[in-house]
């Protein structure tokens, strides 16, 4: 048996999931191979290390709290999607855009003040830019979610 195969089987051996034949082959290999013997010992020790990871005690009343929630309308696990933070200022931006269209643009049309030109551009550009970036980020999230595999292997 080659070391590579033996070392894979050692992991299965830890879980007592090896067949009798394979168990015998691995044991024979371990008797002759110091490197695999080290891996075997370390794998055994890893199990003891993992045992040190305990969980804190769980609060009582889990079932009662859950049963009282059964009638609630189903709520998503997270409170709000990430893009909600981007769209939250949308009313302000839309208001500013309406202001630009209703007040600044007519002023420009009437050959209004020179100050209104950069102001009008800034507001109009800002709202359009924010909307575009919100949409772009929305598609970025969709693409990211596609790229991220469900099991990260």
């Amino acid at each position: 048996m080659r070391c590579r195969k033996a070392q894979k089987l050692i992991a299965v051996r830890v879980d007592r999931a090896l067949s009798e034949t394979l168990e015998e082959q691995v044991t024979r290999h371990l008797a002759d191979c110091r490197a695999c013997g080290d891996v075997s010992a370390q794998t055994g020790r890893l199990g003891r290390e993992l045992d040190t990871y305990s969980t804190p005690p769980i609060r009582g009343g889990f079932t009662e709290r859950l049963m009282s929630r059964l009638d609630e309308p189903r709520v998503a696990v997270t409170v709000s999607p990430w893009w909600a933070a981007v769209l939250r200022p949308a009313p302000v931006v839309l208001g500013a855009a309406a202001f630009a269209c209703g007040v600044v643009v007519p002023l420009l049309g009437n050959g209004g003040s020179q100050i209104a030109v950069p102001l009008g551009r800034e507001v109009a550009g800002g709202s359009a830019g924010q909307l575009a970036s919100a949409l772009a980020e929305d598609s970025v999230e969709a693409r990211l979610l596609e790229l991220l595999p469900s099991v990260e292997e």
Binding site: V14, G37, G44
Partner: peptide, 26 residues
């Protein structure tokens, strides 16, 4: 991966593996 990341398995922290340990059944 866990063996490579846990401090207990860093070189110097790992005790010498004896022949007895190698033969240790799981």
């Amino acid at each position: 991966k866990l063996r490579s990341q846990l401090p207990a398995f860093e070189i110097g922290n790992s005790p010498q593996v004896s022949a007895d340990l190698r033969a240790e059944p799981f």
